[in-house]
Simulated scan of single mutants.
Amino acid sequence: MGLTDFWKGRRVFLTGHTGFKGSWLSLWLERLGADVAAVSLAPETEPSLYRKLAPWDNRSHHIIDIRDAGALLDVVRGFEPEIVIHMAAQALVRRSYENPAETFSTNVMGTANILDAARQAPSVKTVLVITSDKVYANNGSGIPFVETDTLGGKDPYSNSKACTELVCQSYRDSFFKARGIQLATVRAGNVIGGGDWSKDRLIPDFIRAFESNQPILLRYPEAVRPWQHVLEPLGGYLAFAEALTLGSDRKLPDTLNFGPHPESFATVSELAEALGRAHRVEDVWRLAPGEHLPEAPALTLSSALAFDTIGWRPRLSLQQTIDWTAAWYRANREGEDMRAFSLGQIAAYEEALS
């Protein structure tokens, strides 16, 4: 699976472009020559990957809350996109416990507003909605989830993303099929990479601890997660959106998992220790004191369907993922041009795709 010239000049409406994954996808779409209109809240962290990657060219940028249906519709109607990629979300599990209503209103009603705007735009051919690997009803067995497994989610974030899947199913069956609009959802693993400064995520927590010369505090060191570099699922999203737009000889699925090779499944402590080795740190982590909000002890994904239908497979090993991530933060500390450095990592990943 390699990227083609499909995206050059393609009109793409993107949400969540100021976030971690959204900033990387924005840069990649710009490199591919897409014409992008983007909406999001202002960057929530300082430093911010979005600001690090500036200046931005060949696209319009709007600070809009996706819960504002009227503002969204105005942008979509004015831009007339062919493809909608919806990434905006309240994406933090611990924050969802603190603000469950905000999480549901953003992730569920925000998605409904995006789909409703797409429904009213004659130009739209394809809608891709990014949900989460946490949409599945998880009994902690560690068996990799496949796309047909039961949806669930105990915490507000996971449950809101499962609800998002149902909203998409309703819009697909009620409106989009009759108009020939392709609507699909995608579920990625635990995404890491350079430029993430969010709270309560392993990589930014490690970087903050490293820069403070302190060990990182881990809540659940033995929890198993499907770690993958941010460019892996983003490459899958681009390939899937292209296939949906162009059509295929075989029926494409309504949803796909994009996870790492099973060899990249690892515990939280194993990843922390690998990060420590990459940064030449010996005293890497401590068990965080006190009681902690519940999290699934194991979560893994099967990406077999993505390979069978669109030819996608992960290209980077866990060690490469860690090396690329460590290299990004090292370059940032050393004052390099992070837009140029990030474009270099995208170019290297494109070579791995070919």
Rank of each mutant, 00 (worst) to 15 (best):
G276Y: 11
G247M: 04
G153F: 00
I207M: 13
G19V: 02
E222I: 00
G276E: 04
D196G: 06
S174D: 10
L53K: 04
E270S: 10
Y349H: 14
T267M: 04
I310N: 04
S198L: 10
G247Y: 10
Y349D: 13
P122W: 00
A331D: 15
E270I: 06
L305G: 05
L287P: 01
G2V: 12
S354N: 11
D5I: 00
Y50W: 15
G259S: 07
L271Q: 02
H229N: 14
I66K: 01
H229Y: 15
P253Y: 03
N99V: 03
P55Y: 11
L115R: 01
L14C: 03
P215G: 10
L14F: 02
V191T: 12
T106N: 07
H61E: 04
P55S: 08
V135L: 07
S198K: 14
A91G: 05
S123G: 06
D57M: 03
R201S: 05
S141V: 10
L218V: 05
S212E: 15
T103G: 06
T325P: 10
M109E: 15
P262Y: 02
I85Q: 05
N213P: 12
D249G: 15
L32E: 14
T300Y: 05
M109S: 11
M338H: 08
S40Y: 13
V186C: 12
S123P: 12
L202E: 12
T164C: 11
R94V: 00
A306E: 02
H86M: 09
H86G: 01
S48M: 08
P233E: 09
T4W: 11
L316F: 04
S174P: 00
I203C: 06
I143T: 13
T15I: 04
A38Y: 05
L73A: 14
G193C: 10
N213Q: 15
F176H: 06
D200S: 07
T45K: 10
T185P: 02
F145C: 09
L32A: 15
A184I: 09
G153P: 10
